[in-house]
Design a protein around this nucleic acid. Sequence first.
DNA 1: TTCGGGTTTGCATAATTATCCATAATATAT
DNA 2: ATATATTATGGATAATTATGCAAACCCGAA
Lengths: 151, 151
Amino acid sequence: MKNRRQDKILELIDQYDIETQDNLIERLQAAGYPATQATISRDIRELKLSKVMTGHGTYKYIRPPMAEGSVNNRFNAALVDSITRVDCAGNIVVVKTAAGMANAVATGIDSIYSSDILGSVAGDDTIIVVVRDAEAAEKTCENLKMMIQLM
Amino acid sequence: MKNRRQDKILELIDQYDIETQDNLIERLQAAGYPATQATISRDIRELKLSKVMTGHGTYKYIRPPMAEGSVNNRFNAALVDSITRVDCAGNIVVVKTAAGMANAVATGIDSIYSSDILGSVAGDDTIIVVVRDAEAAEKTCENLKMMIQLM
DNA sequence: TTCGGGTTTGCATAATTATCCATAATATAT
DNA sequence: ATATATTATGGATAATTATGCAAACCCGAA
């Protein structure tokens, strides 16, 4: 049965480092859930699993990185809503937010654009973000404005 | 050349939904960075990008779920490694760690999820975390498990 | 300059994953 | 129960991604 098998898949990827679908097939086989690669591929798609590189240069299937409540999702609609203005000058981006929200928003911004951002300081309703260069500042600025539009 | 191209790749995956490497090649081409699929594959590996399924059934490359300098990174690998089990019940999250590590881990957890966390008590190898509500508990739990997966 | 070591790249190809199509299994209605 | 629709699966194959290897490139030292 499909549901049992998919549950087992989740269990297996939690327990082991599953590097390929064939690898997973063997484990499933051993656990009493024979299936072919075609089926597993579809299971993986349905479960929204993804294959990532670990720190050690090996691959591994993991649960959905964009899942509700996951780190990537921390910058959610509510957070974006609380942004009132975004501007940039030089390599600095200034974000104004509703009172008291600056810290939460800053955390969200950091988590998304981490590679461009050198650091940020959040007060009560204002965030000063220092980015790599002016180009990165404009890009970050544009992106934030875009998100405001979209959410 | 390689570095500029990789920067451009990050820029592109931020801006567009890149579904395949070929897709990315076209964008890079247009941006003045010609390269072959082999090169792109290696870039993606080096940047630790991963391909995930979006909510709409399409694929998309995203930045590493555990980027350098992101919030999650304050909670470093050594700390995460020492976690052996995470569970939640109601608005309580229970984290089991290697002997003697509970306090250090608890401090790390507090620093990340402070807004959801009411308080926590750490013994020698067990942490009891009291969070706002069951929903927050599940999110915290998921996030922790996610971190463990990736490290 | 020329040499030697390292890095980066493309080509060809291997490895892996996704999908088309036909069939089997399962559910639903009559 | 039988017919019909819907879903699940496997085989074959297409599509996508990763990698071995050799050539091109890029330094710095002699």
